[in-house]
Design a protein around this nucleic acid. Structure first.
Length: 902
DNA sequence: CACTTAACGTA
DNA sequence: CGTACGTTAAGTGC
């Protein structure tokens, strides 16, 4: 590691960087705005960000060979015992600062930087000791500390970096700089400090004596002892003051003396910089939600810090095939997993591919330009792609299949999809770029060498796009290697089965659904757009009239002005930018003020949203008159699918106007009807199953209305005597429980007193105690194992369950409650989809699945197949899991999605 | 131009 | 102080 600096610096001595952790974190905290740095979970991160940013700069600029951080262990130290007022009178640590220090430690761990603290000792003492030890060896030492006491150990070899402004600007305090600034040598600095005092540490100095006077005295009498010995000779008020404070000054000197003889567990040699733990670094930056900082750090990670040298397989050799020999190339590798990478457009239903690369485990690759592919090769490629028994490894196979489909190829036989595999291993990440996976799992950089780095690959590239072929080949070649790594990772996590029996086959099913899309009535959508548009205009005009001016009703900022400044309405809930103007608050305000502006505003909001939904849908209608969404299979951490471009899982249903949009989704030409099937109360049934609560299981087995049944038990009345109000309270609570709802939250939702909500929950748990036990146990087990699990063994890792930060911990606890339930429901409907597809195929039916909306499937039924399809749909959905309660499925049919719904 | 925020639709 | 998503316009900052 030492040789790293030889190229950068002309000084070949080891360079030790020492950092006072608390002091710098605190500086960072005050340098950066608290409200601008927090994660979506509410964790403040400004101090972490500032600290890590500073650390990154230091490492980059100073190129240390050794690094360590010292922290203060607690508020009690040998100094406070000696002098109870030391550091007294300080404001208590700001709330948002607490909890950030452990996060800094996590980052340091990931960077494999030693950090140390010891009871009763301050960070400065630790740093002073290391500094002295390293100085004695002739090392260069840099000490980064915001504590001026550290200036006392500045020497020609030891420089203190003292923050002047925030944490970005550090003053290099060399012996010369100390002398220039304070008029004394570093060695005498504590003498000066003893006389002057340090208000930050609540150390009183001699009144009226500042650095100038103190330095003058020290120059005159040599050192502090000299000054004290000659205290009588000093005239004036300051002299008298000194004489009055002799004991204080002696005590000060005693206190600001730093220990340099601690027995530390790490010698300076132990502090050598280590290769960073990329995996851990990614994880901690994921939780901190630091994107730019992550990139900055990774970018400066020197090549020699990569954990293992790249394996020899990293060299990709592009085989130049004679026309017509692709079949031979493939035959020579029969049965071996081949990586497949595709270049082109991955748009569902309108994809296209222009280049394909194949790579084997040994690093051999071929690059195929599909536009000028030899007919024999084209056949060989098509057969190989479609063969179920020719093992393929892809990254995002579903998207690649869309591209290939555009060229008439069918993709089958994907035995491992690296994107899906990575998702199952770390379902919380936001992206699974192949480059990142290669680096994290194989320590292999791909696409980094640039065009010139290829091995004679350039001539293979399409004109005007140098490097594309080499890049594609490199990606294809890394896939089988990566697949092996991810396969074993998945097996370790017990999730391999989930990949092969659920997610991989599902990807095929989803690809089909996306490719076929869903038919819409464009005329109807246009009419709706127009109608909603007029209503938007109308509502806006009326709103303007009320307030006497035109504002942008879509701007929360301008609305705040109108509501709270112009109209001086009661303040709503506070948010970052002021007061919220969300629908619930506006409704509250209307109840209080009856102000007509609010009415018009709410109508405007509603209709704007609807118009916008219609607008978006229209933009996505493809040339076949259908909308092709993308079902994202690696986004939702619980295992659900999500839908995007456009999102068809959030089409309105609750309001009459909204439901009209569903009328525009209709059965396609050549088909008879739409069929929708949804699970009734699937999450509550899963709760009953997982908890084993006798009462809840009995409720479902009784066949009675769930919420009425539960309400009758909670309120102690007959099922048919349950009032609508009682039922709806219970319904809200039942669903809330699976989200970790508190009595406070319930009270807010039901608009009742917290006490009443609490009583309701208590009554509920008296009757359904198994639920409470289960909810408690699921959290505790997750805390012990670090993850939750669904009925299919889908894991979600929740490191925050053991966080010291209460807010983070409690959020993780709610996630732990919800994930097995939501995730199991996702498992079940995914299994059902496989069953439905299998049956449709097996029976040679033309009917087909179109959409999935979490607990609902939408199918397009071919003429004459209705009865068969409905039956198989019910059977497959109800039989998708074997729970201790029945899975109930309700089915509807109609010409439109609205009519098929129920 | 890219990113974040507030708001709101679904299960 | 209830989970999981995606999309949009407005606002902010480079």
């Amino acid at each position: 590691m030492e040789d790293r600096l030889s190229g950068v610096s002309d000084d070949a001595r080891p360079r030790l960087l020492l950092i006072d952790g608390h002091s710098m974190a605190f500086r960072a905290y005050f340098a950066l705005p608290v409200d601008k740095f927090s994660t979506s979970t509410g964790q403040h991160t400004n101090a972490v960000h500032g600290f890590v940013s500073m650390l990154a700069n230091l490492i980059k600029n100073e190129q240390p060979t050794h690094v360590a951080v010292a922290f203060d262990a607690g508020s009690t130290t040998f100094r406070t015992e000696r002098f109870p007022d030391y550091k007294g009178g300080r404001e208590s640590t700001p709330e948002p600062f607490k909890g950030q220090v452990p996060l800094i430690r996590e980052v340091l761990d990931a960077m494999r930087i030693t950090h140390y603290e010891r009871d009763m000792i301050e960070a400065d003492d630790i740093l002073a000791t290391w500094s002295k030890q390293a100085g004695a060896k002739g090392w260069q030492v840099l000490v980064c500390s915001g504590d001026r006491d550290s200036l006392q150990f500045v020497t020609p070899d030891v420089t203190v970096l003292y923050p002047v402004k925030g944490v970005s600007e550090l003053a290099r305090m060399t012996p010369e700089a100390v002398e220039a600034k304070y008029g004394v040598t570093p060695e005498r600095y504590p003498d000066l400090a003893a006389l002057v005092g340090e208000s930050a540490d609540n150390i009183p100095g001699v009144p009226k004596v500042g650095p100038k006077t103190a330095a003058k005295w020290l120059a005159q009498y040599g050192d502090l002892d000299g000054v004290l010995a000659h205290a009588d000779e000093i005239g004036g008020v300051v002299g008298q003051n000194l004489r009055d404070h002799l004991d204080q000054v002696r005590l000060n000197r005693e206190i600001n003396h730093l220990l340099t003889d601690l027995d530390l567990p790490h010698s300076p040699e132990d502090l050598a910089v280590q290769p960073w733990d990329r995996e851990a670094l990614h994880q901690v930056f994921d939780t901190l939600q630091f994107r730019t900082l992550r990139d900055r750090l990774l970018a400066m990670m020197p090549a020699e810090d990569r954990e293992d040298a790249p394996a020899d397989a990293a060299v990709v050799e592009i085989d130049v095939l004679a026309p017509g020999t692709l079949g031979d190339w493939l035959a020579a590798r029969r049965g071996q997993p081949i990586g497949l990478e595709v270049r082109g457009s991955f748009v569902p239903g309108a994809g296209d591919a222009d280049m394909v690369a194949l790579g084997d485990l040994e690093g051999h690759a071929v690059v195929l330009d599909l536009a000028q592919l030899d007919p024999a090769d084209d056949t060989a490629l098509g057969q190989w792609l479609a063969a179920e028994d020719a093992p393929v490894v892809a990254h995002g196979g579903k998207a690649r299949a869309h591209a290939l489909r555009g060229r008439g190829y069918t993709l089958r036989g994907v035995v491992l999809d690296t994107e899906l595999a990575a998702y199952l291993c770390h379902p919380d990440q936001r992206s699974y770029d192949l480059e990142d996976l290669a680096v994290r799992n194989l320590h292999r950089e791909i696409g980094a060498s640039g065009p010139a780095g290829g091995q004679g690959a350039l001539e293979l590239d399409l004109e005007g796009e140098p490097g594309a072929g080499a890049d594609l080949a490199e990606r294809a070649a890394v896939l089988p290697v990566l697949a092996a790594a991810l396969e074993s990772d998945l097996k370790d996590r017990g999730s391999y089965d989930l990949l092969t029996t659920l997610e991989l086959p599902l990807a095929d099913v989803l690809e089909g659904m996306e490719a076929r899309g869903v038919a819409v009535d464009v005329e109807m959508l246009r009419e709706l757009e127009c109608e909603f548009g007029q209503q938007v205009q109308g509502a806006a005009q009326e709103a303007y009239q009320v307030i006497g001016r035109e504002v942008n009703l879509g701007s929360p900022k301008q609305l705040q002005e109108v509501l709270f400044d112009q109209l001086d309405m009661p303040r709503t809930k506070k948010i970052k930018t002021g007061y919220t103007t969300d629908a619930a608050s506006l409704a509250d305000l209307f109840a209080k003020t009856q102000h007509p502006f609010l009415e018009h505003l709410l109508v405007h909001r509603d209709v704007t949203k609807l118009r916008q939904t219609v607008d978006t849908l229209l933009r996505y209608v493809a040339s076949d008159g259908r909308i092709h969404t993308t079902f994202q299979q690696t986004v939702a951490a619980t295992g659900r699918l999500s839908s995007a471009d456009p999102n068809l899982q959030n089409i309105p249903i609750r309001t009459a106007a909204g439901r009209r949009i569903r009328q525009a989704f209709r059965v396609g030409e050549g088909y008879e009807t739409l069929l929708t099937a949804d699970y009734s109360q699937i999450e509550m049934r899963i709760m009953a199953h997982l908890s084993g609560d006798e009462g809840l299981i009995a409720a479902f087995r009784s066949g009675e209305d769930l919420h009425s049944y539960v309400a009758s038990r909670v309120f102690g009345v007959a099922t048919d005597e349950v009032s609508a109000a009682q039922r709806s309270k219970i319904k809200a609570m039942s669903y809330g429980l699976a989200y970790g709802l508190s009595a406070f939250g319930l009270s807010k939702q039901l608009n009742v007193a917290v006490g009443e909500a609490q009583a309701l929950m208590d009554d509920y748990f008296t009757r359904f105690g198994g639920v409470r036990t289960y909810l408690h146990e699921v959290v505790e087990e997750a805390r012990a194992t670090g993850f939750t699990e669904t009925i299919r063994g889908r894991r979600r890792y929740l490191p925050d369950l053991t966080s010291d930060n209460r807010q983070r911990r409690e959020i993780a606890e709610r996630v732990a409650l919800n994930s097995p339930i939501q995730g199991s429901a996702a498992d079940i409907i995914k299994d059902a989809m496989l069953g439905v597809q299998r049956e449709l195929d097996a029976r040679g039916l033309r009917s087909r699945m179109l959409l999935q909306v979490h607990d609902e499937l939408v199918l397009e039924v071919a003429p004459g197949e209705l009865e068969t399809v409905e039956e198989l749909l019910r059977t497959q959905m109800a039989g998708a899991a074997d729970l201790s309660v029945p899975l109930e499925v309700s089915v509807g049919r109609g010409q439109t999605w609205h009519d098929a719904g129920h």
